[in-house]
Amino acid sequence: MYRSILVPVDISETELTQKVIPHVEYLARLSNAKVKFFHTLPISSAIINAFSFGYDEFKDQATVGAEKWLKKLIHDIDLPKENLSYALAFGNPRDEILTLADELQPDLIIVGSRRPNISTHLLGSNAAGIVRQAKMSVLVIR
């Protein structure tokens, strides 16, 4: 059914991620699919300035916590570890997710979404943007 699944996660939204995991485990187990978890780190002006001056340690410090969190997430998932991987990027979450999806061409994207509120109504949510622009199926978990 699914050979590969992309799962964008936000390390600051652990409750939402925990709602997504049972769906990931179930669907990946059905066809022994490969699963790639993906987290996007925000780009701040301080990080941009640090990069322009060659301070790679700012990037390294920003990724250490995210990598640790993703490794723990993968460790705790009840799927074959050889089928699990993760990736990190800096940028706008929706744009980075869509870029990675274009590169990987997964059969499915599974993304969590909070209940809409006024800010998502006015600005749009990442999940809504992914659903509108992705070229593959997207499963939104609430």
Rank of each mutant, 00 (worst) to 15 (best):
M1Y: 05
M1G: 12
I5G: 02
I5P: 00
L6P: 04
L6K: 06
L6C: 05
P8N: 05
D10Y: 07
I11H: 10
S12P: 03
E15M: 01
E15G: 10
L16K: 14
L16Y: 09
L16R: 15
T17E: 12
Q18S: 13
K19R: 15
I21V: 14
I21M: 02
P22L: 05
P22A: 03
P22D: 06
V24A: 11
E25D: 00
E25H: 00
E25R: 01
E25V: 10
L27V: 03
R29E: 12
N32F: 13
N32H: 15
N32R: 14
N32P: 06
K34V: 10
K36D: 08
H39R: 09
H39E: 12
T40H: 01
T40K: 01
T40G: 03
L41K: 01
L41H: 00
P42A: 13
P42K: 08
I43D: 04
I43G: 03
I43M: 13
S45N: 12
I47F: 01
I48T: 13
N49K: 14
F51V: 14
S52E: 14
S52T: 13
F53Y: 14
F53E: 13
G54R: 11
K59H: 07
A62D: 08
A62L: 15
T63L: 07
V64C: 04
V64F: 10
A66C: 06
A66K: 05
A66V: 14
E67N: 11
K68I: 06
L70C: 11
L70S: 09
K71R: 15
K72S: 11
K72H: 07
I74G: 03
H75Y: 14
D78L: 05
D78A: 13
D78K: 12
L79S: 06
K81C: 09
K81T: 11
N83G: 02
L84F: 00
L84P: 09
Y86A: 02
Y86M: 02
L88F: 03
A89N: 15
A89W: 10
G91A: 10
N92C: 10
N92H: 13
N92G: 12
P93V: 09
P93G: 05
D95M: 07
D95F: 01
D95S: 10
D95A: 13
E96L: 07
I97E: 07
L98C: 09
T99I: 06
L100N: 10
L100G: 11
A101P: 06
D102W: 01
D102R: 11
L104S: 11
Q105M: 13
P106Y: 01
D107C: 06
D107T: 05
L108A: 08
I110G: 00
I110K: 05
G112N: 08
S113N: 12
R114T: 09
R115N: 14
R115H: 15
P116C: 06
P116Y: 00
N117M: 05
N117A: 03
N117D: 15
I118M: 11
I118A: 13
S119I: 14
L122E: 03
G124C: 09
G124L: 03
S125V: 08
S125N: 05
N126Q: 12
N126A: 09
N126C: 06
A127N: 02
A127W: 00
A127L: 02
V131M: 02
V131I: 11
V131N: 07
R132W: 00
Q133M: 08
M136C: 15
M136V: 15
S137N: 15
S137C: 06
L139Y: 02
V140G: 00
V140R: 03
R142Q: 14
